[in-house]
Design a protein around this nucleic acid. Structure first.
Lengths: 177, 177, 177, 177
DNA sequence: TTTT
DNA sequence: TTTT
């Protein structure tokens, strides 16, 4: 059946990416992204705001880029799809966590939000290392793998949802997100 | 801070909408929408598929339209934003549910998936009854209220997440979704 | 520089796709898609509508699917990017034509709008023939080539814009669109 | 008929906005936005890039914000819809120009790209003057008017397309864009 | 937990 | 005509 499952976010990282590396060398990056709505209350005239936090998962080459260039505070554009994972908590109850699986990522807003220590000329945010995460013409490696397999994540008995490991069988380093 | 929080879905209703009506007459519609990915496994060559289920909440005039025209199986285009609600389950544990708050809705694919009993000419899906849910030029009533207030939903002590009631204080009829 | 150039359409084909085949066997499909806005005039209370026509270009495997399954009247979801081509008309003047280069396509709304003669069970629109044009997990062949080259189309001296032939050098059959 | 006509851009202004003011005081802003794709050529291995230029039209309160805060070089997120206008050139020939009518706008990337002279703390891009152009909860004034009427622009006899003036009858100051 |  |  024809279907579309698409998420588009522009927001800021709440903290540095959580990286996990697989024995194969493949990486997964988990990131928390904040989006904030601001509006004026019709009745009271007050300025209001509400922040939404999103869990975003990056795979493969995209994860590497995230680990290398993003840090707490970075502003990013992310395009991906929703995935709700089922897991079992300590008490044996089924629980659900909704994540965004990223397909593309664009760094926004100059170097101020970039990781990697390098100062560099404020105002730029270009990658000069041969990769490209443009939505349309990016090399395969800079986008999510197009037709990855989709095994269920092995759920861990935890109170917090287990880290997403879609598409991989073993974790070298399982930092819960 | 500049931010974007946008979801676009094309999928089918898993069951009829769950409607709730407020004393004011305002309505909320909760809907489960399925999106299905199909792909061929690179290694085995097998055809695979995975279905994702999304909880979508409609308010106001949009909710009325949903209640009137959509039913189990209806194919829809939905545009909205992600909202994660926190609630407390029976055992006192904090839990989270992620929903899509719909801003616009478009019925797709002819009358076959429409509610309301009417047969009508198969193949069409035009509305000729004066409302309009077009993304760009819809009358205010057919889109989500533009600058609604955003009080926290009053969480109910339940094992399932309480029905979303953002923006309203009292439920006339609280069907858990 | 970080950038995003994205178009999302849901609309209907104004006529059957125009197909062109290259000596290599590659195909290009040109399609005209109508989107219609309806709204009620604030001042007069009249119902109004305006139709927008979009030129959409499909390449490679996507073009083949379009040629095989879409026809006049088909309802489709298209995701792509904007491209403005420059060409020279008969009088030597520079002119510009804006097209949407499609990355993904989803057929909507049951078989009523499908080409290929087959009747089939009205109401469904599932493909069971091994291809997949889902936005996320589609096989490479059903999406636009990820990193195609981008030579300028060779402009033809015509009053109408020449057919788009980005990425190809020779046309076997040059039907102007 | 159900339809969607949506454009999402992240790019930079090629020059300062062109502002026009109507006798009523309403404003229109015309902006040129560049999006750039970069990719590595599969065959030659060369880094390539192509820039696409988009004409974007803002109305009402959004136009005012654009005039006040954006300038050449500003990085923006724009959401809108495609509109192709027909006009007649000097020689009497019908010509077409495709524009993006903006519905929402988000400034990206800190103050480095902001107009208005003010230096301020680099890295910020917040508005502190009571308006809000957030996609979801913005006050009506900061988004495009929801149900504006849609009269055809009065075409001017020019070699370049006449400036877009959808929704307005008279121009106080007609700077061609 | 971000950002302004 | 932008940006890196």
């Amino acid at each position: 059946m024809a279907s579309v499952n698409k998420v588009i976010l522009v927001g800021n990282l709440g903290r540095d990416p959580e990286m996990r590396t697989f024995p194969s060398g493949d990486q997964v990056a988990n990131v928390r992204i904040a989006t904030t709505d601001r509006w004026r209350d019709k009745n009271t005239g007050e300025n209001k705001e509400a922040t939404e936090w999103h869990s975003v998962v990056f795979h493969g080459r995209l994860a590497e880029i995230v680990g290398q260039y993003l840090k707490k505070g970075s502003q990013v554009y992310v395009e991906g799809s929703l995935r709700t994972r089922k897991w079992t908590d300590q008490s044996g109850q089924e629980r659900y966590t909704t994540e965004i699986r990223a397909d593309t990522m664009q760094m926004l807003g100059g170097r101020q939000g970039m990781g990697g220590g390098g100062g560099g000329s404020q105002g730029g945010d270009q990658f000069d290392d041969g990769f490209d995460s443009s939505p349309r013409r990016a090399p395969a490696a800079a986008r999510a793998p197009a037709a990855a397999s989709r095994p269920a994540a092995a759920p861990a008995p935890a109170q917090r949802p287990p880290a997403s490991s879609s598409g991989f069988d073993e974790l070298e380093d399982d930092i819960p997100f």
